[in-house]
Design a protein around this nucleic acid. Structure first.
Lengths: 138, 138
DNA sequence: TTGAATGCAAAGTGTTTGCACGTGC
DNA sequence: GCACGTGCAAACACTTTGCATTCAA
């Protein structure tokens, strides 16, 4: 009975077993799962979940504003359910670990806005975590 | 005879016709080309350039620090040759246009660094450019 | 009942790799 | 001359799509 699920039900979200399991998988504040990780976790609880369903559901949750996509470096997109608290990301180039760091989001001075309407700001710090530095020093 | 090419030669970069054409394609300060765009531009000048060569060269230039990768949203990685002047990116969700905006890069307070060694910071503003807003208002 | 969600497999993209050939230094 | 760069095509990883079936409301 997660917050996310409650919010979705209130908004008239059509609830199926698969969608419930996927939403539950995405409940938490410091998750940065790939679609495949969501699929695997969902299948742990309900084996008959299809890959296409996971992708479709993730896309829908992004459109509903309940999830933000983050493109770490190369490869799979990660999904972040923490849409309430503004934060940056700290990504390890070695192991790919992603940490949230609290912070204020930068703003863009009107003179540099080029007439754009700004929807979102994404800040990513890249580096190496202590354990990766130890195993493969730069 | 671009700056980039000069710098690479000074560093003992092995120079072939293909690599020269690719480096020339990447000369400029507000370019954000995808690998395919680099390939197309390079082939305009030298038809027999292979896709694999472009990818290999781009990767090498990133490792040499002459190019930074930017993952706009979905799909292809873009390559930014402007490694001298710190700047943010302003990306249009409609047409995909990327603009550079001058700015200071945020820093991460030591208390939030989790022991990481920070190599890079990436700031991306997402929104809609004037012309996309006009053609498909939100 | 009915339109929406699902599973599967095939197709699509963007990128990497294996290997024989060619070439700058 | 020899290590390194190259082109091609096949392999890969991630995501989307087409379509017949199932199911929530």
């Amino acid at each position: 009975v997660s917050d996310l699920l409650l919010r979705l039900c209130e908004r008239g979200w059509r609830l199926t077993a698969q969608r419930r399991v996927i939403a539950e998988t995405l409940t938490g504040d410091h998750l940065h799962l790939t679609a495949d990780e969501v699929l695997a976790a969902a299948r742990d609880r309900l084996p008959e979940v299809g890959r296409a369903t996971v992708y479709a559901t993730l896309r829908e949750l992004v459109e509903l504003g309940e999830l933000t996509e983050m493109t770490t470096d190369r490869g799979a997109v990660r999904y972040d359910p923490n849409v309430a608290a503004p934060h940056h990301h700290l990504v390890c180039a070695g192991c790919g670990e992603v940490l949230d760091v609290p912070s204020e989001l930068p703003t863009l001075a009107a003179e540099h806005r080029h007439g754009f309407e700004i929807d979102a700001v994404e800040v990513t710090f890249r580096g190496r975590c202590p354990s990766c530095r130890e195993h493969a020093p730069a």
